[in-house]
Simulated assay, not measured.
Amino acid sequence: MTTPYEDLLARAQADPGVLGIVLTGSQARDGMATDHSDADVIVVVAEYGGAWTATTHSPELDTIPTSLADLADTSDRWRRYAYRGARVLLDRLDGRVGELVRAQATLSPAERDAWTREELDGYVNFVYRAAKNRRDGRPELARLEEIEAAPWFLWTLFSLYGRVRPYNKYLRWELETFPLPAPWTADHLIPALADRPSALFAELETAVRAAGFGDVLDGWGPELELCR
């Protein structure tokens, strides 16, 4: 008896209108799948229609029809990590599907520059707000600002190295499978982000200044001292 995943692959491969098949999610990433993991399959088509119109979900399988134009559209930042570590199972466009998958999973030089600047400024903003709340005797509000700072830190860090931010579920997998330079190990980052993201400020400042983004920090003027 075939599984829903096997049935989908057979149907998609038999359909000449299907341009590509991409496996993503935990099943695509070595060591991440559990007994509860479904298969997430992106079915690439020229245009939506027929059997490939809307995403369907089940405990065993998520089927995600995606047009070629949408696969080429990198404007949705959050969706892009779905393609990190994804496996191209079928490519009827002589490698084009694979190229688009890789483009989703990495940043262009222009994206790296723009994203790093934007996200770094946001991280500094929340660290600064947390510091002001601690200074003024509002620890609970400082904690809320720290929570807000964590995603901005992650976007900054991964953008700095030309990569898209991983979903939290895959953060350890990402850092251990595709390590960043020291000191950015999973055992260092994850506890700090869960406890107090502002504690990473000094190390991030060193990294972003070395990469040429010090002007973003300097734009904060004397207020930067409170962040430190």
Score class of each variant (00 low, 15 high):
residue 91 D to F: 09
residue 213 F to T: 01
residue 106 T to L: 13
residue 130 A to Y: 01
residue 33 A to P: 07
residue 120 L to W: 00
residue 217 L to R: 11
residue 57 H to K: 12
residue 118 E to S: 13
residue 11 R to H: 09
residue 12 A to M: 05
residue 176 E to F: 01
residue 64 I to E: 04
residue 171 L to M: 15
residue 179 P to M: 09
residue 172 R to T: 10
residue 149 A to E: 02
residue 92 R to N: 09
residue 185 T to Y: 07
residue 14 A to R: 09
residue 120 L to P: 08
residue 22 V to E: 01
residue 162 G to R: 12
residue 151 P to H: 08
residue 102 R to T: 14
residue 207 A to V: 03
residue 54 A to T: 15
residue 12 A to Q: 03
residue 188 H to T: 10
residue 172 R to A: 07
residue 83 Y to W: 13
residue 152 W to V: 00
residue 164 V to Y: 01
residue 176 E to N: 14
residue 150 A to H: 00
residue 80 R to Q: 07
residue 190 I to Q: 05
residue 23 L to R: 07
residue 115 W to R: 09
residue 168 N to H: 11
residue 111 E to D: 13
residue 3 T to P: 12
residue 42 I to H: 08
residue 188 H to N: 10
residue 119 E to D: 09
residue 210 A to D: 13
residue 171 L to A: 05
residue 43 V to G: 04
residue 56 T to A: 13
residue 113 D to K: 10
residue 47 E to R: 14
residue 104 Q to E: 09
residue 191 P to D: 09
residue 47 E to Y: 02
residue 204 L to N: 00
residue 209 R to P: 11
residue 159 S to A: 15
residue 108 S to F: 00
residue 111 E to M: 06
residue 143 R to L: 12
residue 31 G to W: 03
residue 22 V to C: 04
residue 125 N to Y: 11
residue 35 D to L: 14
residue 195 D to R: 13
residue 153 F to I: 02
residue 203 E to Q: 15
residue 93 L to F: 05
residue 88 V to Y: 03
residue 27 Q to C: 10
residue 65 P to E: 05
residue 23 L to E: 12
residue 76 D to E: 15
residue 63 T to Y: 00
residue 54 A to Y: 14
residue 21 I to P: 01
residue 122 G to A: 12
residue 194 A to W: 02
residue 138 R to S: 07
residue 77 R to Q: 13
residue 12 A to C: 06
residue 154 L to Q: 12
residue 126 F to K: 09
residue 199 A to T: 14
residue 41 V to M: 03
residue 52 W to H: 03
residue 198 S to L: 08
residue 220 W to N: 04
residue 225 E to Q: 13
residue 10 A to P: 03
residue 186 A to G: 11
residue 6 E to H: 10
residue 188 H to F: 08
residue 2 T to F: 02
residue 176 E to C: 09
residue 17 G to R: 02
residue 190 I to V: 13
residue 127 V to C: 14
residue 201 F to M: 04
residue 164 V to Q: 04
residue 157 L to P: 01
residue 147 I to V: 14
residue 194 A to R: 11
residue 158 F to V: 00
residue 119 E to F: 09
residue 205 E to Y: 04
residue 152 W to H: 15
residue 117 R to E: 08
residue 128 Y to H: 15
residue 100 L to F: 06
residue 114 A to D: 11
residue 150 A to S: 15
residue 115 W to L: 08
residue 154 L to R: 11
residue 50 G to C: 07
residue 87 R to D: 01
residue 67 S to L: 12
residue 8 L to F: 09
residue 2 T to R: 15
residue 154 L to A: 15
residue 38 D to K: 02
residue 89 L to G: 06
residue 81 Y to S: 02
residue 170 Y to S: 13
residue 125 N to D: 13
residue 173 W to Q: 10
residue 178 F to L: 11
residue 199 A to K: 13
residue 57 H to I: 11
residue 219 G to M: 07
